[in-house]
């Protein structure tokens, strides 16, 4: 079903997003049940599971498979950023049941709303970075949002590992300066 995926294909991402979200939610719930509330979720594991659920491994070419991970990372960024934006909007006082969010924060044990601002800022900075280098923003999506290794990222984006390493380092430095100057 994903054999026609082409990295950068906005339509593909559009179609993939709800599926990824739906699967993520199901899998996250399952993972959490397996682990108990205190432990953290394994992002890469989730993406791999989503992948296995969504595509038949034999029905997809090696490059199609790689593209899936790039797209899933992209979807992950969108899901998390949108969530952070929604959370922040709520906090900024539309007056909507902030209680529900506090309860979740408490359950998770971390002050989420603090990170919500950061995740939104990061999303904006990453959009700015993509204008300088689309490839570098992709690298960040794979490494940061999907927790993929250098090798996995190289495979997903079709670039060499040294390029991934360098892009990741320089992108982090640039993003860090953007976030701190904001």
């Amino acid at each position: 079903m994903l054999t026609r995926l082409d990295a950068g294909d906005a339509a593909a991402l559009d179609e993939l997003l709800p599926l990824v979200y739906d699967e993520l939610r199901t899998l996250a719930r399952r993972q959490r049940r397996r682990m108990g509330a205190a432990e953290t979720l394994n992002t890469t594991g989730l993406v791999h599971e989503v992948y296995l659920k969504l595509v038949g491994s034999e029905r997809i070419t090696a490059s199609g498979r790689a593209h899936f991970f790039a797209l899933a990372a992209r979807a992950m960024r969108q899901v998390l950023s949108n969530n952070a934006r929604a959370r922040r909007a709520t906090k900024r006082g539309s007056g909507l049941a902030p209680v529900a969010l506090d309860v979740v924060d408490e359950l998770v044990g971390i002050d989420q709303s603090a990170h919500a601002d950061t995740l939104v800022a990061l999303d904006d900075a990453l959009t700015a970075l993509s204008r300088l280098s689309a490839r570098q923003s992709r690298v960040v999506e794979c490494r940061f949002y999907a927790g993929m290794s250098v090798a996995e990222t190289a495979l997903a984006l079709g670039v060499s590992e040294p390029t991934v390493k360098r892009d990741w380092a320089v992108a982090q430095a640039w993003l860090y300066r953007e976030l701190k100057s904001a």
Binding site: Y21, R25, A28, R29, L41, T43, L80, N83, R87, G109
Partner: peptide
Amino acid sequence: IPPALAALE
């Protein structure tokens, strides 16, 4: 990221 995922969940 993990708490954001947890929140999704």
